[in-house]
Nucleic acid binder design. Sequence first.
DNA 1: CACCATCGGTGCGGTATCGCACATACATCA
DNA 2: TGATGTATGTGCGATACCGCACCGATGGTG
Lengths: 241, 241
Amino acid sequence: MRCAVTASFNPSDNHILGALPSEVGQRLLPLLELVRMPLGKVLYESGDALQHVYFPTNCIVSLLYVLENGSSAEISVVGNEGMIGIALFMGGESTPSRAIVQSAGYAYKLLGQRLKEEFHNNGSMQVLLLRYTQALITQMAQTAVCNRHHSVDQQLCRWLLLSLDRLKDNQLTMTQELIANMLGVRREGVTEAAGKLQKLGVIAYHRGSIEVLDRPQLEQLSCECYAVVKRESDRLMPRPI
Amino acid sequence: MRCAVTASFNPSDNHILGALPSEVGQRLLPLLELVRMPLGKVLYESGDALQHVYFPTNCIVSLLYVLENGSSAEISVVGNEGMIGIALFMGGESTPSRAIVQSAGYAYKLLGQRLKEEFHNNGSMQVLLLRYTQALITQMAQTAVCNRHHSVDQQLCRWLLLSLDRLKDNQLTMTQELIANMLGVRREGVTEAAGKLQKLGVIAYHRGSIEVLDRPQLEQLSCECYAVVKRESDRLMPRPI
DNA sequence: CACCATCGGTGCGGTATCGCACATACATCA
DNA sequence: TGATGTATGTGCGATACCGCACCGATGGTG
């Protein structure tokens, strides 16, 4: 059964891999390893020298900044539209962030050295990765403004939408505690905000799993930040094939 | 007099230009134009297609995100360590941010097309710009967490330090209103925070100009965010010559 | 020198979020 | 079926920041 699941993936499930010209795809194919991404797995810690990069298929990875006092905030989300480990080709080899699997699934893993070689071939991989990086920058920047000016209610909506876009169904496996860590707020704050959404019939919550029932309303309740990031990503990133 | 001032600048006042190997520097030199950067000048608006890039010498430029309701927040600061217009070589040609001169001075201006050519030569310019971009990303991400978790008092200290690092003396020309816009808080909030610093003898405030009297204490009062960004920038960016 | 726009200081009620302390509900497993 | 741990709901007081209103001070300008 597990084998059947893994066999059902294809590198082009990831938008970056899928957008590469076939000759590049052929070159990389034997180097890609499909790996399981269990919930909570830490891909790298703040300051770690990165050894591999990951191209998600159906998993979601959060990039978190953690403060000295232990509080944290998510600065961006990566799903099958992107890649984890941009610091490698940017030249830094490490970043002050933590990458942690927020929704379980699979990803293609590639040796960092291989990615750097491909990047410095100056070909389509470079173009794709740079455009993706700009989309990521937009997401971080918008998160910064959002953290400053929008309510927890609005931010929860934004966050649900960001996650939803990276999954195939409308079912999230996610405790309120975890969401609170991502948003950098109290767990009780998430409880309250999620309660409102549940009363409105937008979501159905049940012990660690959320079903989104009314996505249009979720978009209405969200702050503009979701739409800004989405629009910019669509502009910058290749369409799925 | 004005001529004497302009004549006293050199491209290598900017760390990126200064770190280029001399043959690249020679190639670019005739293409660089020294321009005045008056306070408040908008280099580009959200969504504008960028025509030029700017390498600051002694000016400071803020990258701002502006929300629909008019409120705003600074997501990063650029001085002589960096460049304005990274979206050009990232491939997006535009970004959702606004770039505005926060401290008057001078910068070297270069046609965007020339920069892209140089970037795609795959040489040292590419390496420098990518590493600078990573430093910028760190600053944005840290700003996002800072906005979430730290007080206005702490953030004002961080902001003063970031500005101070990009100037030659400890005198900032800057109204509280302007600082409030950058931090995305009320003007009164800045008044209060600045009042505390003044009482402590850390700064002297006088009608649109701030003098920093006790930098070590300013660093102590600041949140960790300043140090994190500084450390990472020092790691990634070339030392001034 | 007098005017006036700009800048900074202060006070006050409103509110979102925090930190903490519990109470409740559910799921798993012995 | 009952015990236990984890997830969620609720109720407090404390507090940081907001929005608003207004005043005083300053420095440039006619």
